[in-house]
Design a protein around this nucleic acid. Sequence first.
DNA 1: TAGGCCATCTGGTCCT
DNA 2: AGGACCAGATGGCCTA
Length: 110
Amino acid sequence: LTSLSWRRMKANDRERTRMHNLNCALDALRDILPALPEDAKLTKIETLRFARNYIWALTETLRMDAQHHSDGASASPSALDSASPAGCVYDSCDRLHTYTGDDGTSCTVW
DNA sequence: TAGGCCATCTGGTCCT
DNA sequence: AGGACCAGATGGCCTA
């Protein structure tokens, strides 16, 4: 074995480990995402999109809850109730652009 | 069989 | 110099 190929083998091994760690992190993320059927494993890109959408929905829920408390109005439906990716529109870089809730109201993320 | 997803290898670049 | 990170290439597996 030349020293070059030995270094390459070591680098390949590190890269493999790094990608395994990345996949472990993705699995951990899948574990905390809600309302998924047991046998429906999200792909990597779906996991990232859903996580982003879920974070957005949590943020919206907090915002609406704070608004509800300040207005004294009746409780509005939680954004989490419609947190599925179905209502989302993404741009060419997979960034969430617009979200449309069940009530037909839409929200542009930025 | 085509297309999607994934793991792995590889070379380049950046950081310590 | 060596390790971490990244993106492109490649081949295998699975499904419609």
